[in-house]
Design a protein around this nucleic acid. Structure first.
Length: 757
RNA sequence: GGGUCUAUAGCUCAGCUGGUUAGAGCGCUGCAUUCACAUUGCAGAGGCCUCUGGUUCGAAUCCAGAUAGACCCACCA
């Protein structure tokens, strides 16, 4: 009846369709089906939220770890919990816009050719066009998610919740607007949070520049990698302990480029050991200098604009990009004889964005911030009190460390594809806002609103073609979802993606009034990788505690990164990237799932996945397939009167039978204990070993020689069917397919068959 | 600079609160094919458990140090 070899491709499609037809992923339907089969469900729920993959990108191997979530979901579902696995997709604002802009570039266009609204609609259409892929692939992995509950990050109800949260934060005085030195990427045209930046080592020139002391022959030499920012210098700082410079403190020096007088100040932040021990202070373009500048009340000068070009120096460097400006500035310094020397092999840590590793300019820009210390305190308490559990102590520690050191959260992003910050500026009251817009003819303008109005543009025309708006920090505004009146222009910044995804448990379950929220919140199990522990897990905890005073999930499972067979991170440049779909094609989703769940320890920081491993588990699928063939063949031969395993059969058992039954009982206990301890590898390994090396290699061989085949076959079928149940959460497809064909008492689908106790 | 983790077979890793002869998968070697399965079976080789000390009747396991590697956070111009 069954083919000699197990054909995963055909079976997996067929079985997934079977589950969809049953509707069993829906918790309501699950309960109805259980009752139909006369099984009493547990009076408890189990809920898991899927970390939303990017809607417009295909899955990568990291997503194969979603099988951890599906494993728990299936395990609990079989135990009779009312179970829901809620899927969703993310708009991934910044990432998606980057991808889309690359497409535009190929068409010789750029985002500056479109007004906000058009650009947003175009990107959304692009995402929608591609958004089926990720979901199709999740289905191929076997995710038993309730697709009727699918949430997209830009769904109406999500935006509604995000806006409500923003309003509440504002009412509670936790939102503020401030000029602040932020991580600005001239390349991407947006601000980043500290979490979105990193440092890379780079060899550059370290320039030693002389600053003359006023009314004296003396000079102070300063070491810098950024001579172009000398135009914005407002002081020289030395360490108060530094004897070399003691007599120069409070003296005045002359800026070699601008000729401006600036003070020499003393500050502990200066490292005597570094360079010359004297530090030039540029509060407008450096984070340390900004702090020092504020402390000493220094003027803050900004000479780099949003395109990364210099402006306002009154010299030939104006209009040059930072790199060229630096070369030009060095020339000028040389001409003026202010350049002492250059160290050309200086290695320093350059601040870059996480995406393209391009330089970040610290820029003084008005930004929206969320005051987070209160929420952080609340979260620290919840974590310390173990309201939320982590699978390893290290993650709890990491979480607390980050929360205790948290800074206010800049939530503005200057990208279009996201949820717009629902703020409107009354431009009759505040006219000194800076606007970039396309007029009726599609020509671009970049100027002060006042001037635009004088030039004859109407507010409406500007609003329609608006690309970017920068309002001063004291601008009057109202919070509203829709245009509040004719004299208003919208804030053009969008929320940081993590501002909306941080509310994922609330938005997917339809906080505050939805049925799902009442029934399934707090959720039971949250699985993700450690790279977004702060980005996402921390933010979800903070938002949920702030809004509901409850943690959003009771158990956090942090899994490691999937690496190649040598423990190397998969990356395009290394050429070792494996597409999960290739493995599914070749070896089946069941085999890939086993490769992830059992082939390595998912809780380790990294775990390797090799083709050999997955092939091995494909072989295992075939092995259990053939065990079924053997059993079915025997049943057919033996005049079809194999008794179900019961007390009568048990009385006739031989020593071998009793032994295998005892071992099965131990297996069940072990597997349940392993699940309790979230040690999936142990559970899977135990089942694998028992089925292959005990049941197949030994017991089946024994059965072949038995006189009382009825008894032996009854025991064998019982053991085998029990193993199918245990294995189902790991290898759902092949087990369900075999289950359909096995002799058994009840014809309940394996996916909801009662879990062995 | 602050913090964390790892080191066990050729490879990838288990080995949990110390306790017989240190385990698995893959790979390797030899043998077996009208048998449910060659996507198989049987047999086998292969380990100073990184090093040095310490605690202990007993250490892969606990402690200290060394060496090597990985990561997180912060960042010095």
């Amino acid at each position: 009846m069954l083919d000699k070899r197990y054909d995963h491709n055909q079976t997996e499609q067929e079985i997934y369709q079977l589950w969809l037809d049953l509707g069993v992923f829906s918790p309501e339907r699950q309960i109805a089906l259980l009752e139909k089969h006369g099984i009493k469900p547990k009076n408890k729920t189990f809920s898991v939220l899927m970390p939303p993959p990017n809607a417009n990108a295909p899955l990568h191997m990291g997503h194969a770890t979603y099988t951890i979530q599906d494993l728990m979901t299936r395990y609990k579902r079989m135990q009779g919990f009312k179970t829901v696995y809620v899927p969703g997709t993310d708009h991934a604002g910044f990432e998606t816009q980057v991808v889309y802009e690359r497409l535009l570039k190929k068409q010789q266009k750029s985002r500056f050719d479109f007004d906000r609204k058009t650009l947003f609609e175009d990107i959304l259409a692009f995402v929608k066009e591609n958004s089926g892929v990720a979901i199709q692939q999740l289905k191929r992995l076997g995710m038993s998610a309730d697709w009727s509950r699918l949430t997209f990050m830009l769904d109406k109800q999500v935006i509604k919740t995000v806006y409500d949260t923003f309003k509440k934060l504002h009412e509670d005085g936790l939102v503020y607007r401030d000029f602040y030195l932020v991580n600005y990427s001239p390349h991407h045209g947006t601000t980043f949070s500290n979490l979105e930046t990193e440092h890379i080592e780079k060899t550059t020139c370290l320039y030693f520049v002389n600053y003359k002391v006023k009314n004296s022959e003396e000079v102070i030499t300063v070491a810098t990698v950024r001579p172009e920012t000398i135009f914005a210098d407002t002081a020289i700082a030395v360490n108060p302990q530094d004897k070399r410079y003691k007599k120069l403190v409070d003296k005045t020096v002359i800026n070699p480029l601008t000729g401006k007088e600036m003070p020499v100040i003393a500050d502990d932040a200066v490292d005597m050991e570094f360079g010359t021990g004297a530090l030039k202070i540029t509060p407008g373009h450096d984070f340390t200098d900004y702090e020092i500048g504020k402390k000493h009340n220094l003027e803050i000068i900004s000479i780099i604009n949003l395109e990364g070009k210099l402006q306002g120096t009154g010299t030939e460097v104006d209009g040059l990009r930072v790199k060229q400006a630096r070369e030009k500035t060095v020339e000028i310094l040389k001409e003026k004889g202010a350049l002492a020397r250059i160290n050309e092999n200086y290695v320093h840590n350059l601040l870059v964005d996480y995406k393209d590793k391009l330089p970040i300019e610290p820029m003084l820009l008005p930004n929206w911030f969320v005051r987070v210390d209160g929420m952080a305190q609340q979260t620290i308490r919840a974590v310390e009190e173990n309201k939320v559990k982590f699978n390893k102590p290290v993650w709890k520690k990491e979480m607390l460390r980050w929360l205790k050191d948290i800074r206010d959260w800049p939530i503005s992003r200057q990208i279009v594809f996201g949820i717009r910050i629902p703020v409107w500026y009354n431009v009759e009251e505040t006219k000194n806002v800076f606007v970039t817009f396309l007029d009726n003819q599609g020509n671009s303008h970049e100027l002060l609103l006042e001037n635009a109005l004088t030039e004859g543009f109407t507010i409406e025309e500007i609003r329609e073609g608006l690309q970017k708006l920068i309002a001063p920090t004291n601008a009057k505004y109202v919070i509203a979802e829709e245009l509040p009146g004719d004299s208003y222009l919208p804030e053009t910044d969008t929320f940081d993606t993590w501002f909306s995804s941080g509310q994922w448990p609330l938005t997917t379950l339809k906080y505050p009034d939805g049925e799902d929220f009442k029934e399934f919140f707090p959720t039971s199990f949250m699985d993700t990788m450690w790279d977004i522990l702060f980005f996402w897990i921390a933010r979800m905890l903070m938002f949920s505690l702030y809004l509901t005073e409850q943690v959003p999930f009771r158990q956090v499972y942090i899994h490691g990164m999937v690496t190649d067979e040598h423990g190397q991170k998969m990356s395009k440049s290394k050429g070792n990237v494996i597409n999960p779909m290739d493995f599914i094609e070749k070896y089946g989703a069941d085999a890939l799932r086993m490769g992830i769940l059992v082939g390595g320890n998912t809780a380790a920081r990294e775990f390797s996945l090799s083709e050999d491993k997955v092939r091995g588990y494909r072989n295992f699928a075939n092995k259990i397939w053939n065990m079924a063939r053997f059993i079915l063949g025997m049943v057919e031969q033996s005049d079809k009167s194999i008794p179900n395993f019961n007390e009568a059969v048990r009385e006739k058992c031989t020593a071998e039978d009793t032994k295998i039954l005892e071992e099965l009982a131990i297996l069940i206990t072990d597997v349940n204990n392993s699940f309790k301890r979230l040690r999936f590898t142990d559970a899977g390994n135990a089942i694998y070993h028992f089925m292959w090396h005990r049941l197949a290699d030994e017991y089946i061989e024994h059965v072949k020689n038995r006189e009382d085949k009825d008894v032996a076959l009854s025991v064998l079928t019982y053991c085998y069917n029990t193993c199918l149940k245990l294995l189902h959460p790991f290898m759902p497809f092949v087990t369900e397919k075999i289950w359909e064909n096995m002799p058994k008492e009840k014809s309940i689908p394996l996916i909801i068959a009662p879990w062995p106790k």
